[in-house]
Amino acid sequence: MTMSVTHNDVMVGVGLRHPNFTDILTQTKQVDFVEVHSENFFGKGGAALSVLTQVREMYPVSLHSTSMGLGSKQNIPMHYLACLKALTEKINPFLMSEHACFTWGQQQGQLIHSGDLLPIAHTQQTLAKMSEQVDKVQNFLGRQLIIENVSAYIKFDESYLSEADFLAQLCQRTGAKVLLDINNIAVNSVNFEGGNIQQSVADYINELPIESVAQIHLAGCTEPLAGEMTIDDHACPVSDDVWQGYKQAIARFGPVPTLIEWDSDLPKWSVLVDEAQKARDIAHAVLARKSK
């Protein structure tokens, strides 16, 4: 499927989750694309894959992987990549993304998967290993990867590069692009940088080269209790700070595909569609101002 996109058109999509399968297949088209988590469709067949195949006939699909762990020091196992490649060939996604995190490791000599997006040390050593893995996966899949900044709950003392600088260098080395999750910057700002979210987001955005960003994620999370860390639960509407950051991102990076991500306490489909419309309106307003 090809989409003709005029210069100022921003494709706005929503994360498609199980409770909305009926909505997406039975309602008229209200979003430009959908994004799903690749691993949820690794089965060889069955109902979920059939849903996705039907959705693909109606919408461009972005495959967002959650387990690949491109920043792992352990090599990504071939069985994982084979599953992902099979799905990629079935769905022919218009975007393929992952996170700048690690997931694979060893415990007592056995391979384990963390089941979580664990943070990486932002060092030249990690960058070298991760560039190698990104190259390998891009070659294996025959596709460009878009790599997302992550929310974190610990920091490594070893890090001396900023995450934005790390991602910019990674893209330069591998030809990959950045998936900018503005809420993840906000979460890390609260957890590690004193919580001046707007400043953290602005700094992050300005550190990324203009042509490096290929997708934006917008999500919201529950306010933490006093003294607790913010946990990125994707359970809330996008916050005002994140919308503010989105304006800056569109102003700097132009009309990049934008996704509303909501995973826990999922609202009605119409609420997701409304959030997507809000993103579209904001992007249009920023782009209109820019082109004047």
């Binding site: 989750r17 199980h18 409770p19 399968f21 009926t22 297949l25 988590h37 691993e39 949820n40 069955g46 109902a47 979920a48 059939s50 849903v51 039907q54 967002h64 959650t66 387990s67 996170h99 979580d116 997006l117 929310s151 999500a219 999370c221 529950t222 933490p224 946990i231 990125d232 639960d233 994707h234 359970a235 991500e261 995973d263 826990s264 306490d265």
Partner: peptide, 21 residues
């Protein structure tokens, strides 16, 4: 059969469940 009536909830996620679950 309608496949969307049969599919079960998914098990892989990139949200953190530590707070809400």
């Amino acid at each position: 059969e309608k496949c969307y009536g049969v599919a079960k909830a998914a098990q892989n996620d990139c949200a953190n469940l530590a707070g809400t679950h």
